[in-house]
Design a protein around this nucleic acid. Structure first.
Lengths: 275, 275
DNA sequence: GCCGAAATAGAATAAACGTTCCACACCTTG
DNA sequence: CAAGGTGTGGAACGTTTATTCTATTTCGGC
């Protein structure tokens, strides 16, 4: 009597849990498959749900969910839930309290400002993950990975993003030109057949960036915009439009989401080129 | 028989809870005060703890914690916990799932990269909030708010941060010079009595930045470093050292925490100058 | 279409947990 | 010092929730 399924051992991390779930999924009896599907889609709900709630969500009786926990290697639901609770607890351990304490210093105090910017940055990150347009991103990667030279445009508050991209592309060995406006040069002649333009600009859009985009368009080069929603008026100027809903604090934005997206773009392009 | 304490109503948000707690604290019987203190310090633990655990942490019997919940206006512990659970559920509602879905695309896919950078950025933000050295920050603000001109140094991957600071200071009407190395100029003569240097550099530190710091030091100007821990070797070169533990993904970092800290610094300096 | 094994649902059981209540201690007030 | 009120701890209660068990159904192979 060999233990028919090799009696899986309980995963120690949420990632391991996902992997194990993926391995099981597909050749599972009907009810257990329902459990697997619902659990996979609601991983973060487990920490706060009861078996009954989770089972109802999956459309199965609680006992089925119970069996599901056991074939995943846990002794029962309680043990499985412990995994997700500790993951959740680690993510917020003292962070929320700490933020509140920083803010408690009072408006205007430096630490309060840090708390506000941190909060804004975190929200921006979450917004980026939530609202990312994968189609546009893939399209942008495809375009840029075929470009002979990538032209980067970004002025004023977008300049740091463009400058960082220039640094990263340089590190990655990808030909990129930063149009920084030094010496008032427009570098018009550098836009050549086979190149592409990546324009970073937030409303109100800077004239220099728009002018460069128009020119690239006129020369038949693909133009990609990295901007904030709703990106009104940019559609006729760009082939691909990536939007980032950055949260401002006061008059300033942390740029964190824009940089994260820009970096992803750069690394993805590098990966695509190597293959 | 007037209801001695006006019978508080249950707070509807975590912020309201904090306020109500602060209002009560101070004139509370001994055990209840212990509860209040422990709860205030562990707000985020409530969502996942049982009465017994929370009470043990506070060093009181469960029944005391029970009474605490009731004077806060709740019917009992369950109702109080509901508040924190829903707050926790809202913070992760689809975010974690969404991240997981993005990653599910597979390694190398653009959306996976975005997920990784978002995660790294978020962790960096939390690390910043957790490890912020308020003393150093206040000191930096004090120094910079007295400076006639603020000199900004930052090369290579620190350059975007320095460049953004230059933009922000300009917007705020504060005199700042970005030492960008254009045309190979060292701008040595611009370091004048009454100025201050804000040097942004991550290990391995760039020679240009260190050279500038040494020179400023020799001229008797205060030097502030914005760098990553452990900042070995910088102590003799700087008066104030601000550290940011930025999380890398792959070879690149999102700079989000560094920018958030830099922005806070800039806004705090502006606020200080106006008064 | 029958037989064996696996899967399932629902009820029964057990454990964990929140909640209440009461007797006792303490502190204040007359 | 006595009496009343308030604060306190622990035990008992009832509810919720996890878990197990078993009768029944479903499915696959002969």
């Amino acid at each position: 009597m060999p233990a028919d399924p090799p009696a899986l051992s309980p995963p120690a991390t949420v990632e391991a849990f996902r992997d194990q779930l993926l391995g099981l999924s597909g050749n599972l009896p009907r009810r257990l498959q329902q459990c697997a599907d619902h659990v996979a889609r609601n991983l973060d709900a487990i920490a706060l749900s009861t078996v009954a709630q989770l089972a109802q969500g999956a459309g199965v009786p609680p006992s089925a969910m119970m069996r599901f926990c056991q074939i995943m290697g846990f002794s029962g639901y309680a043990e499985m839930q412990r995994l997700f609770r500790s993951a959740l607890a680690r993510s917020a351990p003292d962070y929320a309290t700490r933020l509140a304490n920083l803010k408690a210093g009072g408006a205007g105090h430096p630490s309060t400002l840090v708390a506000e910017f941190v909060e804004a940055g975190r929200q921006s990150m979450e917004a980026l993950a939530r609202d990312l347009n994968e189609t546009a991103l893939n399209q942008a990667v495809a375009t840029l990975s075929h470009a002979k030279t990538i032209h980067l445009a970004g002025f004023r508050r977008s300049f740091p993003v463009a400058a960082y991209l220039a640094y990263v592309f340089d590190k990655l060995g990808i030909a990129a030109v930063l149009h920084d406006g030094v010496a008032g040069l427009a570098h018009r002649a550098t836009l050549q057949r086979g190149d592409a333009l990546l324009a970073i600009t937030f409303a109100p859009y800077s004239d220099e960036t728009l002018a460069l985009a128009r020119q690239a368009r006129a020369s038949g080069l693909p133009v990609i915009f990295l901007t904030d929603p709703p990106a009104t008026g940019l559609a006729p100027l760009g082939d691909t439009i990536l939007t980032v809903a950055e949260i401002d604090f006061g008059a300033f934005r942390s740029l964190s989401a824009a940089i994260a997206l820009a970096l992803s773009l750069a690394v993805a392009v590098a990966a695509r080129r190597e293959t």
